[in-house]
Design a binder for these strands. Sequence first.
DNA 1: AAGTGGTCTAGACCACAGA
DNA 2: CTGTGGTCTAGACCACTTT
Lengths: 240, 240
Amino acid sequence: MAETNADHSVPKHQRIRQTLAAEIRGLPPHSLLPTERDLAKTHNVSRATIRLALDALRDAGLVYRIQGAGTFVAGPTISKTLSLSSFSEDMEIRGMSPSSRLLAADGIAAGRGLAEELGIAATDPVYRISRVRLADDEPICLETAHIPAVRAPELLDRDLTGSLYEILRGYGLQIIRAEQVVKAVVLDVSEAAMLGTPAGSAALRMHRIGLDQRDRPVESTTSIYRADRYDLRLAVRRGG
Amino acid sequence: MAETNADHSVPKHQRIRQTLAAEIRGLPPHSLLPTERDLAKTHNVSRATIRLALDALRDAGLVYRIQGAGTFVAGPTISKTLSLSSFSEDMEIRGMSPSSRLLAADGIAAGRGLAEELGIAATDPVYRISRVRLADDEPICLETAHIPAVRAPELLDRDLTGSLYEILRGYGLQIIRAEQVVKAVVLDVSEAAMLGTPAGSAALRMHRIGLDQRDRPVESTTSIYRADRYDLRLAVRRGG
DNA sequence: AAGTGGTCTAGACCACAGA
DNA sequence: CTGTGGTCTAGACCACTTT
């Protein structure tokens, strides 16, 4: 069991962060929050703990902070994305119901390209899972995932119509980070047919390598999203 | 003579972060770094200061940390992006030389849509600047920027062939955060002509609203990138 | 059992914004 | 000037990984 989930194991700063996030949702943008020292008193913690919570809220784009002036509620944010999410999570955030149609699932030798991406040998086995992903029963995306077989034995025996990330979590694999490359493409005839769009339509092609807590590659996935039903929303910040 | 430290305004943790980043570049992935307590001793600072540096390196994707085990060098990262960058910076990172061809520059009334995006009145004036952006003298992107006139008086008198972000910095405007929406599109005849590609080619359309330190909108920009010359690379992490 | 990163405290001084 | 967030210290205990 990897899931330790007891109440007393939740850090204070995380609880405070959630409390503050809820309060902030009720405030107009650019409202001034209480000072760090005040918050420390009212929550009975040290200022350092309050800062952990406020810094996390700033990184999430909920507040901005100005030295000498205070901490303020940020303007409304379009994008809940930018934080890594699976297709299933992504659609749920958008208020749609995700599902899958399995096209193919088999085991193959990795080959040179995948081997390099996944840090394994070219002859090592990988599982290949191709699916049409749907939101509210409408096709949104063609997805082909490759997972090293050693990392997820007997993967093909699982129910492959749900969230792949959820299944991988069952193997103790958490995808914590990903490298993603996004391109625009024009759909060919067979792709268009599977997505139910005219050939020659635009689509977003995303290639993703997912990495676990130890920075080991867990998946190499290519997804092709219909441009008319999907856009990518991201909040970007200046890197310090 | 203590010539070594003229850095009055540079925080210690930032200096340590840079020192460590340089050292890490010479190490193979998954190398174990010294413990926080060791680093604190060797840098003559407290452990909290070391943690600020290491946490920043983790957020930058340079190291990963495992409780109970240690801090390790992360695997190589494709993407230097995800941190907000102007077209000019973006191209320089990719090792290409950026330039611009000015298509049009004028002042107009904001209108309803822009007014809402920029937080001004529909009748307020905005500057509109349309450019073809080139990398190594090849057209890459069509870009139209809108900037509230009050924020950058006499903007049209500046040299508009360089980095817009650089010019805005001259007005004391720093774009610290942006909301971005990315879609795939198919180029129409006139767009294709200006980009030197066939009509019907794919392209990435990005719409960006740039915000300053106080979360005030500074620019609303739409860019259309040739798919055959440009892709978007981003590192994504699980949001805590 | 030993050692690691994660959390937390109770102070202190500095840099900066604003009246 | 006062008060804010930014930085920093020197401790402490906890949760976790590894031997």
